[in-house]
Amino acid sequence: MPSFDVVSEVDQHELANALDQANREIDTRYDFKGADARIGQSGESGLQLEAQSEFQIEQMMDILLKKIAKRGIDVRCLERGKLAESGRRATLDVEVKQGIDSDSAKRMVKTVKDSKLKVQASIQGEKLRVTGKSRDDLQQVMALLRGGDWGRPLQFENLRD
């Protein structure tokens, strides 16, 4: 039976390249001269922006979003945290969302079942597996899921006949 997996993943190599490009642009911009502003990775799935003021953080966030979009990463995978100001430093934590959370997966399964297509959808960890008898039904499910607003980018992989 044909099947495919629905996942939400970010290419870590492309993300690292986007961070490097953003940091290079920040180093060369006139409004950041002597500001000691940096964008770095914090932990496995997070970014941290550090600068002297909230205004600079907002400028850095704009640069980061442009560089990430240019590298082909969907910006919906980023979730802004709280801005923390302490003395002369401001920091902003940004979470990189990966995987499909259980609430979104349940909504996807319900949407697929409500479509009355002859397919089965099952949740397998942080991904969703869809199986059916015909490849055409699977392509209709892909179009259905692409059209929905799930709050994160979706990729379709492991298409098997």
Rank of each mutant, 00 (worst) to 15 (best):
G99D: 00
E79V: 14
D136Y: 10
K106C: 03
Q59W: 06
K113E: 14
S86H: 05
G72V: 07
S86E: 12
L83H: 10
L128C: 10
D136R: 07
G99V: 06
I100T: 02
L78V: 03
D74P: 03
E95K: 13
G99M: 13
K97H: 04
S104I: 13
R129Q: 14
Q124T: 02
I123V: 06
K97R: 15
A105P: 13
S53W: 05
V119M: 07
F55M: 08
T111Q: 15
K127E: 05
G72R: 03
L78W: 11
S134C: 04
V112M: 09
K110D: 08
D101L: 01
I100A: 03
K106D: 04
T91V: 15
D137F: 11
Q59N: 12
V96I: 12
A51E: 09
A121W: 11
R88T: 15
D137I: 15
C77K: 00
S86R: 15
L49N: 01
E50H: 01
V109N: 05
Q120S: 14
I123R: 02
K97N: 14
S115K: 05
V96Y: 04
V112E: 00
R80F: 10
A84N: 01
L138F: 06
Q52G: 15
V94G: 07
V112Y: 02
R135T: 13
V112I: 15
E126W: 06
E54P: 06
V109T: 13
V119F: 10
M60N: 06
G81M: 07
D137R: 09
G81K: 07
L138S: 00
R80C: 05
G132Y: 11
Q52T: 14
S102Y: 10
Q52V: 06
R88F: 01
L128N: 04
V75A: 01
V96M: 09
L92E: 10
A90F: 03
D103L: 02
K118H: 11
S102H: 03
A84D: 08
Q56H: 11
L78K: 11
S134P: 01
D62L: 12
A51Q: 05
V109W: 11
K66Q: 12
D101F: 02
